[in-house]
Design a protein around this nucleic acid. Sequence first.
DNA 1: CATCACCTGTATAACGTTATAGAGCCGCGC
DNA 2: GCGCGGCTCTATAACGTTATACAGGTGATG
Lengths: 338, 338
Amino acid sequence: MGVNLKDIAQRAGVSLATVSNVVNGYRPVGERTRQRVQQAIDELGYSPNLGARHLRRGRTGLIALAVPELTNPYFAELAEIAIAEAAGLGYTLVMENTAADREAELALLDGSRQRIIDGLILSPVRIGREEVLARTAGSPLVLIGEGVYDVPHDHIAIDNVAASHAAIRHLVAIGRRRIAFIGATPGGDRQSAHLRVRGYREALAAAGLPYRPRLVAGTDAFGRLDGMRAMRDLLALGDPPDAVFGYNDLVAIGALRALAEAGHRVPEHVAVVGIDDIEEGRFTAPTLTTIAPDKREIGRLAVRRLIARIEGAEVAGPLTVQTPFRLLRRESTGTPDA
Amino acid sequence: MGVNLKDIAQRAGVSLATVSNVVNGYRPVGERTRQRVQQAIDELGYSPNLGARHLRRGRTGLIALAVPELTNPYFAELAEIAIAEAAGLGYTLVMENTAADREAELALLDGSRQRIIDGLILSPVRIGREEVLARTAGSPLVLIGEGVYDVPHDHIAIDNVAASHAAIRHLVAIGRRRIAFIGATPGGDRQSAHLRVRGYREALAAAGLPYRPRLVAGTDAFGRLDGMRAMRDLLALGDPPDAVFGYNDLVAIGALRALAEAGHRVPEHVAVVGIDDIEEGRFTAPTLTTIAPDKREIGRLAVRRLIARIEGAEVAGPLTVQTPFRLLRRESTGTPDA
DNA sequence: CATCACCTGTATAACGTTATAGAGCCGCGC
DNA sequence: GCGCGGCTCTATAACGTTATACAGGTGATG
């Protein structure tokens, strides 16, 4: 089908090996022959067969980014960054959608998939420490975002507890007292939900506010629809909250919708805060106050770490890295930043 | 590194070829030996090296979906469908981000990238008929969404002109007379923008309404920010529009935001319609009326066509397929569907 | 002048798989 | 009793690349 090394070698009147050396500079080649070979390459339009190259090298140049929801803008934005970073380092990034399914996550961890992928960046939501430790596949693994700790892999995440603290402190600072949380999973199924609830409770306690279990709403998933339904339930309480902290921006946006439908004004009646800083939250009415993780840092660091491991480089520093976040005050809490 | 065919062959006491036959059923194998081999496979945990397989077969099992913006929910939703469909057919789908960059689209069309990919689904925005015709790479190509016609490739899209008609007819039906369009590109840079503007003009004419150039707003890109800015400009006109049709939902959502900021009520003062039916539009305040393409059909059809071509199957029917769309009436035009 | 090191370039053996040609065996029919 | 077809299985040649070992030539050094 395509032009291969042999064709170039014939055309340029040199050996196969020399062409290979010109192409990837493994060995020095004389200036005159290099030019002849280069000319042949240009004329015939050669590009290496990556399958063969990777068979020989033992690497494919492919890395995967597995996320629980492709349609969550947070992951789309993260993916865009990671794809660019990987491309810059000569790798191709494959998006994988686990759909928040436990089996899918397990299959990815040590499935046959692994043979074609040099390494995996995984945002786990249904598996924990044991499953990760039981992993047999040898290729490097970088975890992002959720709470699987004490495993021998790189892990990049924000401090979920601290992030919750910041959100709640802000709500308290603007005078709210009945603060709800939307997006807890009853069984602690999703680790980061657990952590964010913990931060919520700790911050309430620190502010001297009572913890009211009825103000913590569980959800099936973490989309807009889930946030909307949970908010409706909260509004149906005899004594509804005066502020809501959502597990993520999508949930918070769903809550905004429910509040609008019910005729409550935000932030006058109810203030709303999310996490993720997705672009959408800058265009809602009102705009959404949020905890903004440094997506660029997370995406780039995850890719760089993974590739460093693949290439066997020494990686300095601890396995677990907590990336910075900041509170972006917007209209939904009534005090927009400048 | 991994377990390979040879290991299995030794363990089971058979030849390499027999193991291969057991694995992919190319030739019949006796029941007794099949079981012995299968047992060895299970014990040693063999999975084929896809690189080697693909080198031999000449295919990689990878297809790419190249879109202009990963962070546009329309493409994220489409990608989710396409990934699932490809996986079901035994292929892995790689997401590629052209960032609406002409060079990136060209590189994809016949770049070296192609050597690792069996086929490409491309949503072109900066290239046209000539560039596609000049393509030299041999692997199958399926075009989606935009207007590159009369090329020897499958093309799956909605009828952009008809979609615009439907939107404008709806606005006229609810009594609007000064209807603006947001998201034209002055130079006709993006083909579908051109088509949607044409549908807009035709529908205005059919309704006996004058075409007012000042009500057609160009934008640099097609995101929320672009829609918001364009809407602000339109509102600054002496005689602002009573309805707005956005190039896509993101643009329309940006317009909603600008209207809210300026204190205009939607749909009472200005009605708004978009295209794409992204989930976000079901949660805005007000919810967004939109032209909904059949994303499931587009995604599945594109993948199925591409794989059929890769596998050399005969594909019946014309190259160009126009998939259905429907108008979803929501609050932004004041007449929600049941 | 012989030795050695060095610099270019070449021949070739992998990498792990699949497809082709063919070898052995058995039973059937002439 | 011999050939022949059918059934299993095997040996082996690719696929296109990279890395290793080596060959030839040149210039410097003892």
